[in-house]
Design a protein around this nucleic acid. Structure first.
Lengths: 181, 181
DNA sequence: CTCCTATAGTTAGGATCCTAATCATATGGC
DNA sequence: GCCATATGATTAGGATCCTAACTATAGGAG
């Protein structure tokens, strides 16, 4: 607190309710200003978190995406197909190819040809990659935990439940575009 | 050896609590699995929302960043300095330069030299830019509102409060690195 | 067996936003 | 007035992830 670099603008309070109300009144719309505020704050929080995350992982020579790939690999016996990784991480196969390229260059994963299907290329976690995850574990999980440190246990459950419903709302929006009756 | 990877993937349920627990147990860490889950879900939601947002704005020939710049301009009398825009949007001045370039090319904003300070270049919202905001208003705010449509009014307040505290937690993490910049 | 289509992965090119370096203008000590 | 430093904006180049096009292999219809 006590930031007051000068005029307001605590990034935690951006955008403000007043701002949302002004926007709505300008066009005389029939929407709830608080709903708009929730949506806008969530977007701001997401962007901020993504940025903080990249900084966090860069300390270990990783990016958010590359860490997620390693962790998913570890959680699936250290061996997966690129297409499985893409689905688990929620990114495209093209993105996975790029992530693997960098991780393989750094020796954290390796590509192996599949005996069963010549099109497939298995991705395996190397000893070096497993070691990297071990090194990071304590600090990384402490980092994640401290993010929600200001919430009481029961508040975390509540937040999780509400966030889940908002996520559903987002999915609904996304599907609205290409719904083929 | 592990689980046969038959686990279906509902993106709304990723990551799962079981996944978080496995990770924590693997390294025998003393952290709360639910806290990890909250953090991971929030990151996933943020990424998803950012993606949905880009798709939404692309229907109007805009990006998330360019819309936010136009909206901020409108909220400040249609005239601001690039440095003010950067602070309001929470991005760097270099990014603002790029956003203005595109918006100016499309005729939605214009740059004007400042009479008082030769280094400054005022950004003004053009009639075309104001018109674009008018066109978008109804659909855009309906979009935002539907995102939180599954939450009751009082739940929105709760969510806002909890999200605010998590955002503080994120800020704390960010500042931890460079204590005194 | 041959051909046509489907699938796995990669490559090419675009959009976003970042950091660091640069250019031009202001400001203050001497 | 002159020069060193600070500041506003831009440029250059990097990282991330996307869509679309491409290569190679698999598999079924005839």
């Amino acid at each position: 607190m006590n930031n007051n670099s000068k005029t307001i603008h605590d990034p935690n309070a951006a955008p403000t309710l007043a701002q949302s109300q002004r926007q709505i009144e300008r066009y005389d719309l029939d929407v709830d200003a608080q709903a708009i505020l929730v949506a806008a704050r969530l977007m701001a929080a997401g962007a901020k978190l993504a940025q903080a995350s990249e900084i966090h992982f860069s300390k270990f020579g990783l990016s958010t995406g590359r860490y997620r790939l390693l962790a998913d690999l570890e959680d699936h016996g250290g061996e997966e197909l690129p297409s499985q990784l893409a689905e688990h991480l929620g990114v495209t196969r093209a993105t996975v190819t790029g992530l693997i390229d960098t991780l393989a260059r750094d020796g954290l994963v390796a590509r192996r040809a599949s005996a069963e299907d010549g099109r497939q290329r298995t991705v395996v976690l190397t000893e070096s990659g497993a070691s990297k995850l071990r090194e990071m574990a304590a600090e990384h999980f402490a980092w994640l935990e401290s993010m929600v440190g200001l919430l009481a246990i029961e508040e975390r459950s509540v937040f999780l439940e509400l966030l889940g419903r908002i996520t559903q709302g987002i999915s609904g929006l996304a599907n609205e575009r290409d719904k083929q009756s």
